[in-house]
Computed example of a mutant assay.
Amino acid sequence: MALTSASRRSSGAGPVPDATPDDTDRVILDLLLHDGRATLHELAAATGLSTSATSVRVRRLVERGVIAGFHARVDRAVLGRPVEVLAQVQVRADADLAAFEDALAGSAAVVSAWQVTGEYDYAVHLACRSLPDVEEELRRLREQPGVRRASAQLLLHQVQLS
């Protein structure tokens, strides 16, 4: 789950001021965005730097918070959670947002959650075992203290952008 107490505390803080990537950093970042498993050798070849110099740049990008982490894309169907939905949750103005977010973090079905603008206050990506499991997760969301309403859209097909 992407939302934790630590990430909530640090989510508003961007990279440190000296973290502005230069053109070489941007090449590294672009390659890593498209292939998080790109090797230092591949990154070095793309930038024209030595592997050692590339390693230093990647380490600095991590230390400065420009690279927030490395992640694997996992086929959720293989894990027994083939049904994905995007739930929208509206909370009351007096709701305890920290308690609500902690409840989200405690659910195995929650893939990620975002506080958003607009009619709803949160967008929650759920990976469920079945349609009845979706109904159960929506019921749990609606029963959280401070929740006014929740609805969901079934995610049919993820568009691969590159």
Rank of each mutant, 00 (worst) to 15 (best):
V58R: 02
A2V: 13
V147H: 02
E137Q: 15
A53S: 07
A2E: 10
E63G: 08
P132Q: 05
A46R: 03
Q158W: 07
Q158R: 14
P132A: 10
G14D: 12
R8W: 14
Q115E: 12
L86A: 14
Q115L: 13
A53F: 00
V116H: 04
S10H: 12
S5C: 00
A93T: 15
R81M: 08
T20S: 11
A53N: 07
L3R: 15
R73T: 10
R140H: 06
I67K: 01
V85D: 08
L97V: 14
E137N: 09
D35H: 12
T117F: 13
T24I: 15
W114R: 14
L104W: 02
V89E: 02
H125E: 08
L154E: 00
T20A: 13
T54M: 04
I28S: 05
L43I: 01
L33P: 00
V134R: 04
S5V: 08
A6Q: 12
R92W: 02
R37A: 14
F100D: 02
A38W: 02
D30Y: 09
D102I: 01
I28H: 06
Y122N: 06
R64N: 05
V111T: 08
P21T: 05
L40M: 11
S11Q: 13
P21N: 05
S162V: 02
V159H: 14
L126W: 04
E135T: 08
W114Y: 15
V83C: 07
A19P: 06
V66W: 02
R9N: 13
V62S: 03
A87E: 03
V16F: 00
E135F: 05
A44S: 04
E84N: 11
T4E: 08
L138V: 09
S55I: 00
S112A: 15
A46G: 10
L138G: 06
D96I: 01
E84V: 03
P82S: 07
C128M: 11
V58M: 04
V78Y: 06
L141Q: 08
E135I: 02
E101H: 11
Y120H: 15
L61T: 07
R139N: 05
Q153R: 09
V62P: 04
A46V: 09
R37C: 03
V116G: 07
L138M: 12
S5I: 09
Y122S: 08
D23S: 15
S7Q: 06
A108E: 14
Y122I: 09
S130V: 11
G106A: 12
G36K: 01
W114M: 11
A45C: 02
G69H: 10
A150P: 03
P145V: 13
S10E: 13
A95E: 07
T4F: 09
A127N: 07
A98P: 01
V85N: 08
